[in-house]
Simulated assay, not measured.
Amino acid sequence: MTSVDKPTQDAPQQHESRAVTEAALFEAFGGVRGMVETVLPGLLFVSIFTITKDLHWSAIAALGVSLLMVAVRLVMKDTMKHAFSGVFGVAFGVIFAMFTGNAKDFYLPGMLYTLGLALAYIITTLAGVPLIGLILGPVFKENLSWRTRNPGRKKAYAKASWAWGLILLAKCAILFPLYWWADTTQLGWVLVTLKIPPFLLAVWLTWVFLAKAPAPIDVFAEMEAEERAEKAAAEAAADGGRHRRGA
């Protein structure tokens, strides 16, 4: 095999690996619909508050649209994890803002969650168990096999987790000063603007790192193969026993 032939033969495998990675990222992070569910409640809150300056109606509208999106997923029998996470996030924001009477506090739980998530990505990577690997491992059907059996993939997960952590920290570095210095509408519009671009950048970098990484080890397929082998061995032993008794 020449050096010219090898890339040609590897190209289909690389294409398949990238397609699998894209599908897994789409499933893990919710795709376009998940992004809409993430952005819409906050967009509705800041839009209504900008016009009316009424905390109660803005909060009710944001919570209402979150519940509506959950209801739509229930009717369509779709996965609920992204919609439910959105509802809980909005509900915490509403409760916090209503309790303090400060409309800016609608955004504070989400900002604190973002900061905590950024630190989680960084700390878990430093500890040798990058968070993005814990999230995507089950999606790729590799679970934690990448930790000990696939070092190239562990390295890719570490790079991706660093990317997520640093991007989210940069986002926090913009939002927290605005929480103290800006008014509710200014903070709200900046926050809505920063919902999608940093997320897309982190997902794209994750795709870049994983597309170049070794393929995941399908531990579920391995377990199924072991079960089939054990079953075949047991059947062979039973057949051998019957033949000996027959003899």
Rank of each mutant, 00 (worst) to 15 (best):
Cys172Leu: 02
Ala160Lys: 04
Val39Lys: 12
Thr79Gln: 06
Lys141Cys: 02
Thr38Phe: 10
Arg73Pro: 02
Lys195Gly: 00
Lys155Asp: 08
Glu224Ser: 13
Ala237Asn: 13
Thr2His: 14
Gln14Leu: 15
Leu25Ile: 06
Met35Thr: 02
Ala23Leu: 07
Trp181Cys: 01
Arg245Gly: 04
Pro7Tyr: 11
Thr21Ile: 07
Ala71Ser: 11
Gly165Thr: 05
Ala211Glu: 00
Tyr121Trp: 08
Leu200His: 09
Arg147Asp: 08
Met111Asn: 11
Ile167Val: 13
Leu119Phe: 12
Trp57Thr: 14
Val70Glu: 04
Gly31Glu: 07
Val94Tyr: 06
Ala61His: 12
Lys81Phe: 02
Lys155Trp: 08
Ile123Thr: 10
Ala118Gly: 05
Ala225Arg: 15
Thr124Ile: 02
Ile51Gln: 14
Leu67Lys: 08
Lys212Cys: 01
Ala229Gln: 15
Ser47Pro: 01
Ala19Glu: 11
Gly31Met: 05
Ile167Asp: 03
Trp204Asn: 07
Val75Glu: 00
Ala215Ser: 10
Ala24Asn: 03
Ala237Trp: 06
Val39Asn: 08
Ser66Lys: 08
Trp164Ile: 03
Pro177Cys: 10
Gly240Glu: 10
Lys104Gly: 04
Gly152Lys: 11
Phe92Asp: 00
Leu112Ile: 14
Ile135Cys: 02
Leu201Ala: 13
Thr184Asp: 12
Ala127Phe: 13
Ala247His: 10
Thr21Leu: 01
Gly241Gln: 09
Leu205Lys: 12
Trp146Ser: 04
Gly240Ser: 08
Thr21Pro: 03
Ile167Ser: 08
Ala160Ile: 05
Gly246Asp: 07
Leu115Phe: 14
Pro7Ala: 12
Lys53Thr: 10
Phe26His: 06
Pro7Ile: 13
Trp57Glu: 06
Ile174Phe: 06
Asp10Trp: 03
Leu74Gly: 01
Asp5Ser: 13
Phe220His: 06
Gly133Gln: 05
Pro130Val: 05
Leu210Cys: 01
Ala97Tyr: 09
Phe45Ala: 05
Glu235Thr: 07
Thr148Met: 14
Ala103Asp: 09
Ser66Glu: 02
Val72Met: 14
Val32Cys: 00
Lys53Ala: 13
Asp218Asn: 15
Leu168Asn: 05
Trp181Thr: 14
Ala23Val: 02
Ala24Phe: 04
Ile217Thr: 12
Met111Cys: 03
Phe96Pro: 00
Ser85Met: 09
Val20Glu: 09
Val46Gln: 13
Asp105Thr: 00
